[in-house]
Amino acid sequence: MPGNWKNNVKWKNNLSGGLAVVTVALIAIGVWQAIVWYWGLPKALLPTPKQTFDSAVMNRESLLKGIYSTACAAVMGLAVAIALGSVISIALSQSKWLRIAIFPYIILLQTVPIVAVAPLLIIWSGYTFRSVVIVTVIVCLFPIVNSVAAGLTRIDQDMNDLFDLYKVSRAKRLQKLQIPSAINDLVIGSKTSSGLAVIGAIVAEFFVGNGTRYDGLGTLITGWQALSKTDALIAALFASAALGLAMFATVHFIGAVVLRRWTS
């Protein structure tokens, strides 16, 4: 009975949370519609929600293709960043000197504007899908390395003492203590990077898409901007946001499944 009651409360909480989100969205759409009506704005400046929806339906093929291409680049970039970031973090966790020597460059990777790096990368790597993935990796890498490296090195003193007591090798300490300790940090870093992955992919597509047959959301956005198709641009904006949310929700779900047994 208590279990059922708890589930019931949880279900009700989820329902009311969902209703609150939908209510806010409906209010926002209402305000948007009211602004267009009140000021009599032309479609080229700000289309109504209905006009935007119609444009999304009309351009659904391009949008779906764009979402697919951008999603592929974002997922692949995030996956490579997770793998590469984990390897870099493990290397950093093994040597204080390596941390001192390498970490400033990883911070540099984060501070250099990606819009300045992307054109260079495209010159070196070509107007290809690969370039989009590389830009995405660069954008996603820092949060993962930052989070995982901290998780690998921030070990409870008692646990370190326990492993010292049993005279454990460095490799075994890494395997049995540091890596499992850092899983939670990997999930947190990946969640942060999941939203950034879509941004990175779209920014790269702005450059890659110029004059090529690449069909990501970024390419669509630059193309529609040139044609002043405001309704289609807003539709692309919603598609980008939806993709970012989907990426975040997927990583969140995977993280929750991995960690579900460890936390209350």
């Binding site: 008692d158 646990m159 003492d161 326990l162 049995k176 047994r261």
Partner: peptide, 28 residues
């Protein structure tokens, strides 16, 4: 030598029995 700390200091990703087998695994 066995050592008991002020805090239980258990590995949160391991069950009770897996925490107890840990020293045996570490000793290879």
């Amino acid at each position: 030598i066995g050592f008991v700390f002020q805090q239980p200091s258990l590995l949160r990703w391991r069950t009770a029995i897996e925490n107890v087998t840990l020293p045996l695994e570490l000793m290879s």
